[in-house]
Amino acid sequence: MLVEMQNLTIAFPTPQGMSQAVRGVSMTLGQEKLGIVGESGSGKSISARAILRLLPPQAVVTADVLRFDGIDIKTASERQMRAIRGRRAGLILQDPKYSLNPIMTAGSQIAEAWRNQKKGSRREAAEAALDLLSQVQIRDVRRVAAAYPHELSGGMGQRVMIAMMLAPDPELLIADEPTSALDATVQAEILRLMEDLVSRRGMGLMLISHDLPLVSHFCDRVAVMYAGRVVEELGAGELLHAKHPYTRGLLECLPTLSHPKLRLPVMARDPAWLA
């Protein structure tokens, strides 16, 4: 198992006392595509970040088990964590504008990520960067490699970001809303690309998103989170058979082209879901 998580809780201090953001989440991830879906504040992002120990310092994290490829994250040294972050596990964020260094060309950022791990020569790194860019299906690799982040479109920037994360041959890719800032046409391309890379390289993918139909389209399994808990776990084709009223509500309140509704059903949040 790549990731094992049992009974994870995360709390943040506030002036009114501790606020529980994640309340007992358990999941496992092998070489597969796991989607985590939930609305803002459901704890989906921070649960995933806990695996890389990338939470703000005031967060209080407890777990019965929290392991990455057998390494106990709770007791791992900062040095061990550095060996995991960005090498064995990559993180792709929503907006490439903020994740890429604005004063380095795309090519040199990828080359640097590659050299950090592979210790090759500059020339080899530059070659590897071009190769990685072509793997993320960029046609004009030399132009993109020489471009600065602000000269790239959102979709291009996200491809560069993915190429950078792929440079050290990671075993796990965590993508936190990787396509929310992108147009629908580009969104589909990027997801298909990630899907393809993950299955070809035999990596694990954790795709975090608020878009349930989108995620279930691309993932093998989907975990639906609500208020810091996983309320339901579904296989890829089982979306229509979702049982939990929250999951059903998420699907029903979407306006669709194919089934017009005069009025959108509104979710009635049952306090019992919190229990």
Partner: peptide, 11 residues
């Protein structure tokens, strides 16, 4: 907005 909130606002 989240999809459930989107429905409320559209209504």
């Amino acid at each position: 907005l989240d999809v459930s909130v989107q429905a409320e606002v559209l209504n």
